[in-house]
């Protein structure tokens, strides 16, 4: 399968933070979720793809093209939502239409107004009067209205209530009905990703901890809960991380079936992405 996005050995050094050797491949027609703590490097990676940060090592290809050489061409086909809103607050949603028409060759005004309508957004009201959730929806409407092939979304559902989040996710799922299109999104709301993501990439302290299909991850990994006696029986190599709680040990294991065969412990829970993040970051090796 062809990759719509390919990042090879991306590295970038800052004074107090560095991105180390990031490799990502996102096939066509797929959704990849980026997870990690605040400051782990998710946004930096996204900004490198969009060529917002410069002077990095490595190679980034979007639609098979170099993101620096063919920047303009690539950006025609990318829809972006960043964590911080980039529209001046005195604009109205109708102004955005006039501006974007000049920027994107494929800008589709009627599609834009359709999204405004679907999201119940006002056409003639200054952005500064809109709520946080409405602003987010406005950004999403804007990013979709030029028929992009790749969506790059940094926290697209943050600030949205569950009903609005659901609406937005439906729109993403509609978008992916076209198998030429892909989505890369970072999110703190890991339950959203647990449902819709095809791949999960976990970034921690500027490095990729793991990048797998979500199905593999959710079906193989597990969280064992046990007392001290059982915990001491577990071979070091059979556990990824562990955490000692008040009444139990929580142990993250890479393959719950194998683990079960070897140890016959009763309580192996399904792992959630939240468990994965907390245990990988806060747990002991």
């Amino acid at each position: 399968m062809e990759n719509i996005l390919e990042i090879k050995n991306l590295s970038k050094k800052y004074k107090d933070f560095q991105l180390k050797d990031i490799n990502i491949k996102l096939p066509k027609g797929m959704i990849m979720g980026l997870i990690g703590e605040n400051g782990a490097g998710k946004t930096t990676t996204i900004k490198a793809i969009l060529d917002i940060i410069k002077d990095y090592q490595g190679e980034i290809k979007v639609f098979g093209l170099d993101n620096r050489i063919d920047e303009k061409k690539i950006k025609e086909d990318i829809g972006v939502v960043l964590d911080d809103m980039f529209f001046p607050e005195i604009l109205m949603p109708s102004d955005i239409d006039s501006i974007m028409r000049e920027i994107y060759k494929n800008w589709d005004s009627s599609l834009y107004f359709k999204y405004l309508n679907d999201f119940s957004l006002p056409i003639k009201k200054e952005i500064k009067t809109l709520s946080k959730g409405m602003r987010k929806k406005l950004e999403i409407a804007t990013c979709l209205a030029h028929h992009p092939k790749l969506l790059i979304l940094d926290e697209p559902t943050s600030g949205l209530d569950p009903v609005a989040r659901n609406e937005v996710i439906d729109i993403f799922l509609d978008f992916i009905q076209n198998e030429e299109c892909s989505i890369l999104l970072s999110s703190h709301i890991t339950t959203d990703l647990e449902h819709i993501a095809d791949y999960i990439t976990f970034i921690n302290q500027g490095e990729i901890l793991l990048s797998k299909t979500k199905d593999e991850l959710m079906e193989q990994y597990g969280v064992v809960k046990c007392g001290l006696e059982d915990f001491l029986k577990i071979d070091k190599n059979d556990r990824l991380r562990y955490k000692k709680n008040r009444y139990e040990y929580e142990v993250l294991v890479e393959n719950k079936k194998e683990f079960n065969k070897k140890y016959h412990m009763t309580t192996i829970d399904k792992m959630t992405l939240e468990d994965l993040m907390v245990l990988m970051i806060k747990g002991v090796k």
Binding site: D170, L173, I176, E179, I196, T213
Partner: peptide, 13 residues
């Protein structure tokens, strides 16, 4: 793809 959308699960699934 349609089934994945309706079941809200991954296309890979």
């Amino acid at each position: 793809r349609a089934l994945a959308k309706d079941l809200r699960c991954s296309v890979i699934t």
